[in-house]
Write a protein that binds this DNA or RNA. Structure first.
Length: 471
RNA sequence: GUCCCCAUCGUCUAGCGGUCCAGGACUCCGCCCUUUCACGGCGGCAACGGGGGUUCGAACCCCCCUGGGGACGCCA
C-alpha cells in the first residue's frame, strides 16, 4: 500500500503555525516514502467555516511549498457519502437515533460534574426507542461498553483506553449533517490514508475513531500524535503570544524554508544539525524520533534560523523572495544594481527580508534625509575636504571595481594623513545617509559612478549649509 | 473533577545503564577580527523537578508525588 498522509485543517480561521508543523511532518513523511500527500478541508461546521479561511490555508500552503498530490477535498461535497455510512451504521445496529434535547444533555452534564464525574452521555436512547416527532433526532454511534482500545502511536508509543471512558458520540446532527469524528474516519478510509499525523489534542478522539472504523470493518491507519506547540509561558500557543498565522510570518520577512526549518526542529532533531534544506529534511526526517513532549515557540531562534537561510540560500532565490518587499516599499529593483549582487552584499546583515529591503533602499532611490547623528558625527572637520578629494579621484577612475575603489580610499587617507575611518565614514554617510553599510568599496562598486558623484555633491552642499547655519 | 499525554540549561535539543562532575544551538556576557554595521572565531553563565525502588553502577528502567499540557461539544 502506498504511504498516504494528509493535512486536514478546518477553515475557521488563519492557518495556524501548529497546523503547519503537522502538515510539514505529514508532507515530509509522504515525500520520503514516495507516497501521496493529501489536502482536505474539514468544513462540516457550516456556521464557522469561511471562504476566506480556505483561501488563507491554500495561500499558506502554496507559500510554504507544501504541495499536495490530491485535493483540496471539501467535506461539504461528500455529504452523500457520509449519509450512506450513517445509514449503514444505523441499519447494522451500530448507531441509533437520540431524541434527548440539548437542555436535557446540559442538565445531565451539570449533574455529573457536581458528582465529580466525567461528563458523558448516559445512553438513555441507546436501547429504548423514545421517538418524539417534535424534535429531529441526532444519530449516535453505539460505542462498545466493555473492553479496551489499544493502538501503538508512532510518536507516543502504546496507548490504551477503556471503553468505559467513552460515551456514544454524535455522528449526525439534528439537521442530518455529519460531525467530525465520523467524517475523518470515513475520509481517511476512503482516501486510503495510511498514516494519520496530527496534533495530540486528538489522542482522546482516536479510540472512538478506531471503534467506528471497526464497526465499518476497516483497518485503522498508523497514528502519530505530535505534541502541541506552546507559547513562552508554557500555555498552548495562541494569538496572545504574537503571530500564529503563517501568513504573518511571510509579512515579517521570513523565508518559507526557514520557517519550516525552525518548525521541524521544534520536537525533532538530527544530531547537532540546526540548518536543513528541504531536500535534506526529506532525506533525514524521522517520524519515529519526534519528541513526545510539547515544546515552546521561540521567535528569537526563528529569526536566527531565517538569517542562516538568507545567508546560505542561492542569491537568486533570495532575490526572488525579496522582490515583493521592495515593491511594497515603492523601491524599483530596475533602478539600480542587479538585485543578486545587492543580496550578496546585504545578506550577512539582514536577518529578515524586511531588513534587507530597507537596507537596499539607497541603491535604488535617493534617501530623504541624512541620519542626524551620523551626519553630525561625520560631516565635520576635514570631511568636506575628504569628500572633495575623493570625488575628484572617482571622477577620473577608469576601472570602477571594488579593488580600485578600495585603493582610492586608502590613498586618500594616506595623502591627507587621516585615519581610514575619517575617510570612509564621511563617504559612507554621503552615499547611504547612514553610519552603517556594507564595506565601503563594495558599496561604491555597486552604487556606480553617477550616483556616487551626485551624492558626494549633495553631501558637500549639505555640509556647506550646516556651516552657514552655525555661523 | 474524571480520563489521556508529558517532564535534561530561560528556550530548542543530544543522551537510549558505565565513555556525562551531562554535549550542541538560540538568547545574554566577555575577548578577537574590523573603515561602520554585520558575518565569523574564541571563551563564559546556565539543566537531569522531588521521593522511593531495581542494579556493582541510573539523566537513562519501574513506582509514587509534584508540575505542565490536552480531552471531556449537535467544534474540528
Amino acid at each position: 500500500m502506498t504511504v498516504t498522509t494528509r493535512f486536514a485543517p478546518s477553515p475557521t480561521g488563519y492557518l495556524h503555525i501548529g497546523g503547519v508543523r503537522t502538515a510539514l511532518y505529514s508532507w515530509l513523511y509522504a515525500r520520503q516514502h514516495g507516497g501521496r500527500f493529501i489536502l482536505r478541508i474539514e468544513d462540516t461546521d457550516l456556521e464557522r467555516s469561511t471562504p476566506e479561511s480556505v483561501n488563507a490555508i491554500l495561500e499558506g500552503m502554496a507559500w510554504l511549498g507544501l504541495d499536495y498530490d490530491q485535493g483540496p477535498f471539501y467535506q461539504t461535497q461528500r455529504f452523500d457519502r457520509y449519509r450512506d455510512v450513517i445509514q449503514q451504521l444505523l441499519a447494522q445496529g451500530d448507531a441509533y437515533y437520540c431524541y434527548c434535547s440539548k437542555e436535557e444533555l446540559e442538565q445531565l452534564r451539570s449533574e455529573q460534574l457536581a458528582r465529580k464525574e466525567k461528563p458523558r452521555y448516559d445512553g438513555k436512547c441507546r436501547d429504548q426507542e423514545t421517538a418524539n416527532d417534535d424534535r429531529s433526532p441526532v444519530v449516535r454511534f453505539k460505542n462498545p461498553k466493555t473492553g479496551v482500545v489499544t493502538f501503538n502511536d508512532a510518536v507516543k508509543g502504546p496507548i490504551t483506553v477503556s471503553n468505559q471512558e467513552l460515551d456514544d458520540l454524535i455522528i449526525a446532527r439534528g439537521d442530518g449533517t455529519p460531525t467530525y469524528n465520523l467524517t475523518v474516519v470515513v475520509d481517511d478510509w476512503d482516501m486510503g490514508v495510511t498514516h494519520v499525523i496530527r496534533g495530540d489534542d486528538h489522542i482522546n478522539n482516536t479510540p472512538r475513531q478506531i471503534n467506528i472504523l471497526s464497526a465499518l470493518g476497516a483497518k485503522p491507519p498508523v497514528y502519530a500524535h505530535v505534541p502541541m506547540i506552546l507559547g513562552a509561558d508554557g500555555a498552548r500557543l495562541s494569538k496572545r503570544h504574537g503571530a500564529v498565522s503563517v501568513l504573518q510570518y511571510r509579512e515579517q520577512g521570513f523565508l518559507p524554508e526557514a520557517l519550516l526549518n525552525y518548525l521541524v526542529r521544534l520536537g525533532w532533531s538530527h544530531g547537532d544539525q540546526e540548518i536543513f534544506t528541504l531536500d535534506e529534511l526529506v532525506e533525514k526526517f524521522r517520524l519515529e524520533t519526534v519528541n513526545a513532549a510539547p515544546s515552546a515557540f521561540n521567535p528569537e531562534k526563528l529569526v536566527w534560523v531565517n538569517h542562516q537561510h538568507i545567508m546560505t540560500a542561492a542569491p537568486e532565490h533570495v532575490a526572488r523572495h525579496l522582490r515583493p518587499y521592495l515593491e511594497q516599499r515603492g523601491i524599483d529593483p530596475e533602478a539600480g544594481p542587479d538585485l543578486k549582487a545587492v543580496v550578496l552584499l546585504l545578506r550577512e546583515r539582514s536577518k529578515t527580508l524586511i531588513e534587507m529591503a530597507e537596507g537596499s533602499r539607497y541603491f535604488y532611490q535617493e534617501f530623504e534625509d541624512y541620519d542626524a547623528k551620523a551626519a553630525q558625527k561625520n560631516f565635520k572637520g576635514e570631511a568636506a575636504q575628504v569628500l572633495a578629494t575623493l570625488a575628484k579621484q572617482f571622477a577620473e577612475l577608469t576601472d570602477w571595481q571594488a579593488d580600485a575603489l578600495h585603493q582610492v580610499v586608502i590613498d586618500t587617507s594616506e595623502t591627507l594623513e587621516l585615519k581610514l575611518g575619517k575617510v570612509a565614514q564621511p563617504l559612507r554617510v554621503a552615499l547611504t545617509g547612514t553610519g552603517q553599510s556594507p564595506s565601503i568599496d563594495a558599496t561604491l562598486a555597486l552604487l556606480g559612478r553617477d550616483k556616487t558623484l551626485s551624492r558626494i555633491d549633495r553631501a558637500l552642499a549639505f555640509i556647506q549649509q550646516m556651516g552657514k547655519a552655525k555661523s
